[in-house]
Nucleic acid binder design. Structure first.
Lengths: 185, 185
DNA sequence: CTCTATCTATAAAT
DNA sequence: ATTTATAGATAGAG
């Protein structure tokens, strides 16, 4: 929202995104609060940012809301912090995280052209397509960076003229007085 | 919002308010989801309506988010030592695993041509090389699979001769007695 | 932080 | 459910 439409996908972590995150967090909190007032609801909101910091909101008491959830969610979806249960629970969580890591590693290997034998012909074809797309984006990014660099040089006065290789081939005789130059790539 | 300004105070429970409650709940959920995607945050939302019905949202797993919250909040109390130790141990482990996941996700994104702005020119070039290598391996794997498939056909007697397009172009006159054939690709 | 143009959510009506 | 008019949220700029 605002001055430009925001596509909903992961964004680069910039100074600006920090500000936006804060704004949206507050917006969410405000709406949660409105909901709780308008409809006499009990609302709890928990947010961990990507760097692990915690932000929470509750119109009553977050622990009691969680307890209430526990009671409803079938006796023990959320284990007690009793030692045994805690240990068990964390093991489960570790297992899940490990599983996720395995998946990501497999995906990575495939993207790097490894372990291809586990793929079907169709999956292989899809992978092929994806990689072609990546290369395309990478190429255009490279181009973009190069352009930016050249602009920089211009700005610092290190380049007076940009000469194409074609131009060079034809000879510099008729050209302006060069000091420094780079070839167009 | 909408056709009239809504004062934020408890409202009568009417048929209309039910609809509004639903809308606002969904709006809140949507925003929570956007927050989690845009900033890679872990978000959990718990709502109990006034009649006690539960609505929840979580972009990952609500129990694990709650546990994560507890692990942080419980630092204020003094639990028994075993518990502290176990919790600490698994917390460390989880943190490491999460970190690994982040790394893998970043790598994956780069391989898919996303979030390229975080890379230097050199890294971009390396990525480019890697992907070219992948594509090469994928192509050769595709070829290999195709070959294997053709062999299969041979073994089942579905193909008698494999004819190259060059061969075909020259004409079939001087060739052996064909029954079935496929073109080499 | 404040401002504001622009985008989004939603109250009310259909 | 779908539409519409309006209040609200917020991205980017200052």
């Amino acid at each position: 929202m605002g001055r430009g439409k925001t596509e909903i996908k992961r964004i680069e972590n910039t100074r600006n995104s920090q500000v936006s995150f804060c704004k949206r967090r507050n917006g969410l909190k405000k709406k949660a609060n409105e909901l709780s007032i308008l409809y006499e609801a009990e609302v709890a909101l928990i947010v961990f940012c990507s760097r692990g910091r915690l932000f929470e909101y509750s119109n009553s008491n977050i622990s009691s809301t969680i307890e209430r959830l526990k009671r409803i969610s079938d006796n023990s979806v959320t284990p007690d912090l009793d030692k045994v249960f805690a240990t068990f629970y964390y093991q489960e969580e570790s297992a899940k995280l490990r599983q996720q890591i395995q998946m990501l590693e497999t995906s990575n290997r495939h993207l790097l052209g490894d372990s291809l034998s586990t793929l079907t012909a169709k999956e292989l074809e899809e992978l092929n397509k994806k990689l072609k797309g990546s290369l395309k984006r990478i190429r255009s990014k490279k181009h973009e960076m190069l352009q930016a660099e050249i602009e920089q040089f211009y700005r610092r006065g290190r380049i007076t003229y940009l000469i194409s290789s074609e131009h060079l081939r034809r000879g510099l005789q008729s050209s302006p007085p060069y000091k420094n130059f780079v070839l167009e790539i």
